[in-house]
Amino acid sequence: MLQLLKRYREIALGAAALVVPLAVYFAHARHPGERNAFDRAVVKVARPVEWLVGAGITGVGDAWRGYLALRHADDRARDLQGQVNRLAVEGMELSRLRAENQRLRQLLAFAPAAGDRPVIGARVIGVRLDPKGTQLVTIDRGSDAGLVRMMPVVAAQGVVGRVHAVQGGSAEVLLITDRNSSVAVRAERSRARANVRGTGDPSRCRLDHALRADDLAEGDLLVTSGTDGVFPRGLPVGKVEGLKKVGQGLYQRAAVAPAVEVTRVEEVLVLGASPAEAAVQVAP
């Protein structure tokens, strides 16, 4: 027996390496657990690489733009080339800052919509729009800044998602385009209620539980209804597209174009709990 085991040891272990994870998956498939300490340590190992690569790419991009600016300087202004280059780079820096300023202003203008909730500004530092997994972005604020799971995350254009996991200095945001994300909404025009569910495709969601009798039309703006206990009411979520009333079903179907282009979002606001909600959470 021992001889047999020795002979087929490799094959048996190779098969076990397949079977054990499959069994673990079927055990966890319906109820995926939280990340444990080891998982968090593994994520922590990768964080500096994200920061470094991000800084590297930004640096190379800046250098490249500076080089282009030099190439396009007028030959006749050679004597003033140094000055022109400096001004050109400063100009680009200014326009970059202006664009950033504009985005941040839009974000700030959006903040009063959060009502009496505290808002925490954050930058996106990484994305994981995995077709076979979750649709996540990493932001540079975490539990050190007071973030906790399920906090709503918004941009100037509307809802981005909700906080999914937090580390000390960073957090992961589950986007509304994720298959497991569902946001309770109302059509702004008719006040018809429905849910917006992600499809795993970063450019579209779908409308769920929109009653056939409800008044919905192409292009209707959908805003959060505030009934899902995560998002405050009135935040833009997306627009109705491709509305269909198929056969005799109870519901009508439609796609939803998200209000926020999740692949382009750079700065976000995380909405904290309102004082009333915080009091409810603290109460036993």
């Binding site: 994520v43 990768a46 470094l52 790419i57 530092i125 994305v127 995995d130 692949t263």
Partner: peptide, 21 residues
């Protein structure tokens, strides 16, 4: 794998914002 995953997340963000998986 942890290092490559970190690299992948940063590259995805800076080169296409995750549009390209």
């Amino acid at each position: 794998a942890a290092l490559l995953s970190g690299l992948q997340a940063a590259l995805s963000f800076h080169l296409g914002g995750g549009w390209v998986p």
